[in-house]
């Protein structure tokens, strides 16, 4: 709470990649060792992924019985994965779910977070605001499996079952606690001066929320957007329970398609895992600067 948020760094790109200035005398051998360690650790962390990608080019029998033989590399798994999975439909559905639920989720989380932190009442209602904030944060500890039955029932009774909204609503609900945690964390330290200046200019409440404060929250919102998209992209329990139309399947269901009662096609699983993973990695790589910037801006205060 004490570290004062400085709006400057976000708008000055030069500091984007280097935080700590290194003193000139620290170069040379030490630096080589540090670099070597960094590369090595990264490699070790990435190795399991590379291993899976390698396995995805092996036959199912080889994966299970001779995982280290690289003699019979094949594209068969990919062929099977593409044959079985309607990837285009899956990507389309996942995108729709992700875009809609993440956008709505962020907008309503932001509104709530704004109200919980930036609003001041004459009688001093901090207590209500804090209680509500805790109420929202309690959701962080909810294991998703207790939601399945009741959510299914809610969807049925609202007549949403079989529609995208059946998934969108729970997705929004699940992301709200974390969104509120980060957004309130940032908003609480938001410098009052900006607001005061805006108030002097005669700006109303909603304009204040959207036109003055929200734009400054871009980095945090971008961070949350990416984390939320990752969540929706990977979400399995709701998807498998609430989707029963093959035209509505999502990418997270792809891998489980190869898991029969008595037969598991590990090769095709690895291949479809890779097919799900690569776009994710690409998206993250493209946006990772935003994530870091967002976290820097306020998430961690």
């Amino acid at each position: 709470m004490s570290t004062h948020v400085d709006v400057r760094p976000k708008t000055t790109p030069p500091s984007a990649d280097k935080d700590v200035p290194h003193s000139p005398r620290r170069r040379g051998r030490g630096r080589i060792i540090v670099s070597a360690a960094a590369y090595l650790i990264t490699f070790v962390i990435l190795f399991p992924l590379l291993w899976i990608m390698l396995l995805s080019f092996q036959t199912n029998d080889n994966i299970l019985n001779h995982p280290f033989s690289l003699s019979q590399l094949t594209l068969d798994n990919y062929r099977q994965a593409l044959d079985t999975l309607n990837l285009l439909v899956m990507y389309k559905n996942t995108l729709i779910l992700a875009v809609v639920s993440v956008t709505i989720g962020l907008v309503i989380s932001y509104l709530a977070a704004f109200a919980l932190t930036r609003m001041v009442f004459r009688g001093g209602r901090r207590r209500t605001q804090n209680t509500l904030r805790f109420y929202f944060l309690a959701g962080l500890a909810v294991p998703v499996y207790i939601l399945l039955f009741p959510v299914y029932r809610l969807d049925i009774s609202f007549g949403l079952f079989g529609t995208y909204l059946a998934l969108i609503l729970p997705y929004i609900a699940v992301t709200i606690p974390f969104n509120i945690l980060l957004l309130t964390g940032f908003l609480r330290d938001f410098p009052e001066e900006i607001e005061q200046a805006a108030v002097m200019d005669g700006v109303g409440l909603w304009r204040m929320a959207w036109k003055v404060v929200f734009p400054l929250m871009r980095p945090v919102v971008a961070t949350l957007a990416i984390l939320n998209v990752i969540y929706v992209w990977n979400e399995f329990p709701f998807a498998v329970t609430l989707i029963n139309d093959p035209n509505m399947t999502t990418v997270s269901l792809g891998v489980s398609q190869f898991q029969g009662v008595y037969s598991v096609n590990y090769g095709a699983m690895m291949a479809s895992a890779t097919l799900v993973l690569l776009p994710q990695l690409a998206i993250y790589a493209a946006f990772q600067k935003q994530v870091i910037a967002g976290m820097t801006a306020g998430a961690v205060r």
């Binding site: 509104l111 709530a112 609900a173």
Partner: peptide, 14 residues
């Protein structure tokens, strides 16, 4: 401002 999040969250989490 609080209502939309509160409603969705209460219904689908609480």
């Amino acid at each position: 401002m609080v209502a939309p999040a509160l409603i969705v969250y209460s219904l689908y989490m609480i």
